[in-house]
């Protein structure tokens, strides 16, 4: 693996291998000292053209816990504001001598495009509506940690699929790992074409909620009202929000997931968000370990795996 751009580039064994590696970092995270020197001397740049404090902090925490040096390129105060091109920004950063770039951009395809201008490994931290592969990995990891495997699970992804890189990545990861995915949304919030998507579709959350193991709710953005995609947030919440009544109808073992940040009262009721089977903070915690695994897979070597073994246990 040279880059992590899209779940589409990975097969089932790649995904499982990354999840297995994540297990190791979760174990490390439970130790009193959470840092390991696996990527000491390596430099990771976070290049976020779009605000995302959570994802950026998660990646930076992951890199620091591996002993890597972290450079944060914040677009808001940089040369980009002065009109510097994407290419010049990437070439300039690369000239510092770096090993990986974590990139987030509002335009689909940017992580793929910038490969031309750097020898660093590229990790996609989210591009447009296209992909957010580490989110899909952390979601898959979280589900696996609850059910042992994704095989045979039925997972509903509910909400604004059309504009969601999380949904595009999750659909690919979940189905490659053996789960069945049902998309639940009004037609206006589905992609114009689902040709080639290994999913079923429902426009009725009530018909689906009693049949699923995972209820994955997507963030509903307020600007969608302006685009006349739904009549109102109120109607959206009534028809597609996870109300306490709907949460009651979830199976005994079913879990509730959300990529954050949640709009309480819109896609998820406050009461449902606080239930014990809502695993949103677990997702966040797993995010650090998953990103450690991704960084290690791109920058580390097998021999360095030994550095993960607990020391002084004798």
């Amino acid at each position: 693996m040279r880059h992590l751009l899209s779940i589409a580039d990975l097969d089932r064994s790649d995904l499982e291998s990354l999840l297995n590696l994540t297990d190791r970092f979760v174990e490390v995270s439970r130790r009193p000292i959470r840092n390991v020197p696996a990527l000491r001397g390596r430099t990771v740049v976070s290049l976020f053209f779009e605000d995302s404090t959570r994802t950026r902090l998660s990646f930076e925490t992951a890199a620091k816990r591996l002993g890597a040096d972290v450079m944060t390129f914040s677009v808001g105060t940089s040369s980009v504001k002065k009109g510097e091109s994407l290419r010049d920004t990437v070439e300039t950063i690369s000239a510092f001598g770096i090993d990986a770039i974590v990139v987030r951009h509002a335009s689909s395809g940017v992580p793929s495009t910038i490969r031309r201008w750097t020898s660093a490994a590229i990790l996609n931290g989210g591009d447009g509506w296209h992909q957010h592969p580490t989110q899909a990995l952390l979601d898959s990891y979280t589900i696996r940690s609850h059910f042992g495997s994704l095989d045979g699970l039925r997972i509903a992804i509910v909400g604004d699929i059309k504009h969601s890189r999380v949904a595009r990545s999750d659909v690919q990861a979940f189905t490659k790992l053996g789960a069945e995915v049902v998309l639940v949304a009004p037609p206006t919030l589905l992609p114009p074409s689902l040709e080639g998507w290994p999913v079923t579709v429902s426009h009725d959350l009530d018909a689906v909620v009693g049949t699923i193991d995972v209820c994955y709710l997507l963030r509903m953005q307020r600007e969608r009202m302006v685009e006349a995609l739904v009549p109102s947030l109120r109607e959206y919440a009534q028809r597609f929000g996870l109300s306490p009544e709907r949460a009651d109808r979830l199976g005994e073992r079913a879990i509730i997931m959300h990529p954050g940040p949640m709009n309480r009262g819109v896609e998820i009721s406050p009461e449902a968000a606080d239930r014990p089977n809502a695993v949103v903070t677990e997702q966040v915690a797993n995010g650090v370990a998953v990103r450690q695994a991704a960084l290690f897979r791109l920058l580390g070597t097998e021999s360095q795996l030994e550095s993960l073994e607990p020391k002084g246990t004798s």
Binding site: G128, H163, R165, E195, W197
Partner: peptide
């Protein structure tokens, strides 16, 4: 173009 490819790539398409 709006269609299967734009839907897969997450690009706003025109029909």
């Amino acid at each position: 173009h709006e269609g299967a490819v734009s839907s897969r790539l997450g690009m706003p398409g025109q029909p």
